[in-house]
Design a protein around this nucleic acid. Structure first.
Lengths: 198, 198
DNA sequence: CATCCACTATGACAGCGGTCATAGTAGGGC
DNA sequence: GCCCTACTATGACCGCTGTCATAGTGGATG
């Protein structure tokens, strides 16, 4: 949504991520990506000489950076930043989407991992990099909230693990229950890890 | 492993689950399933007149029941059952596999959800049922350990959410870090929910 | 032996996938 | 006008997939 007026190349990467989210990597066709992006089919081989593999990898990378960037925006939206509040905000992005637009899409990084981890080494690495690009900002935010350094990374990984799994279950059940449940149960644990300093 | 001497039908369901675990649903071919099961190709349409959809759904159902059954075995293996201990055992199944056999496979239910949730309604329902068949025994075990009834279901869902996400990340990173991390961070929370009664 | 059934065995088909090859267009620099 | 580059436009190819159709086997039953 709101892809404004970026170049056709970026639009195709964005569309690829969008379609992978919904149908998985294997079921997403190149022609479909071009059509969804409103880009000519011929541009695919021009911008992505590495073929589908390159396109998928860039889509995964884009998704990772996007998730990382969102963290800062979530923090800005919180009146008083707490680990549990950040997690709630991260989950709310998904409950909002599911409740307003239906359960069509999941996380594109998860989809790439499931479909390509064993098959395509470069995509597996792209997925790992995407998780890193996401975990980093979350861990940074946690340290800023007073979580001790060595714990911050661990909790960031825990948050993303739980969120990814909850997304999966929510999509299967077509019910945001798993997401709200994760926030409710994990929030106190996360907040307890931050030393009170206000 | 150790599929002993079951009938060809069950072997094909088992093989389908095995292959879906590794490559996802879309990339798993029917011919491939038959070959992997050592079953004749002609048997596919005999045993699964509903086609690939039926086969996939049965594989997902099988995986769900298998996961549910494992819970009882994990409990039996624990000298003193605690929620955190159960979770550790559930995760250990994965770390053991990854460390001994490599990061080839993930959870077949997750794969089916990612690949089919939007496309194939019956498979989405099968995935939801599989999660339910898994969550049920976990919740039951938690109540047996003294977790209050309404909390048990919530924690069971949390455990499976976190485990699924950690499996995903571990596979992408080819490192069991996310799994051991989940056990370390979530274990105390789970144990705290059980009232001490020993 | 005949009959029936569960199961196996192949071949064909239609569709779609990613990719390659080739040609065409637009526009800027000289 | 010419040329070079960036991009677009199509059509063809080949491999693969799920599915169907048809025929064959083998053993139990009568």
């Amino acid at each position: 949504m709101a892809q404004s007026e970026r170049g056709p190349r970026e639009r195709m990467v964005f569309s690829a991520a969008q379609l992978i989210r919904r149908e998985g990597v294997a079921s997403t066709g190149m022609r479909e990506v071009a059509a969804h992006a409103g880009a000519p089919r011929g541009s695919l081989q021009h911008y992505f000489p590495g073929g589908k593999e390159q396109l998928v990898n860039e889509a995964v990378g884009w998704a990772g950076r996007y998730a990382g960037r969102r963290v800062a925006r979530f923090l800005a939206a919180l009146p008083e930043p707490t680990p549990g509040g950040l997690f709630a905000e991260m989950a709310r992005q998904w409950t909002d989407e599911y409740e307003s637009a239906g359960f069509a899409g999941g996380c594109p990084v998860a989809a790439a991992t499931v479909d390509c981890a064993e098959t395509t080494a470069s995509t597996r690495r792209a997925a790992a990099a995407a998780f890193a690009a996401w975990t980093g900002p979350v861990a940074g935010a946690l340290t800023d909230m007073g979580v001790p350094g060595e714990r911050a990374g661990a909790l960031a990984t825990l948050m993303i693990s739980t969120l990814e799994g909850a997304i999966l279950i929510a999509r299967a059940e077509q019910d945001v229950r798993a997401l709200t449940n994760a926030v409710r149960e994990l929030g106190p644990l996360l907040d307890a890890a931050a030393v009170e300093d206000c």
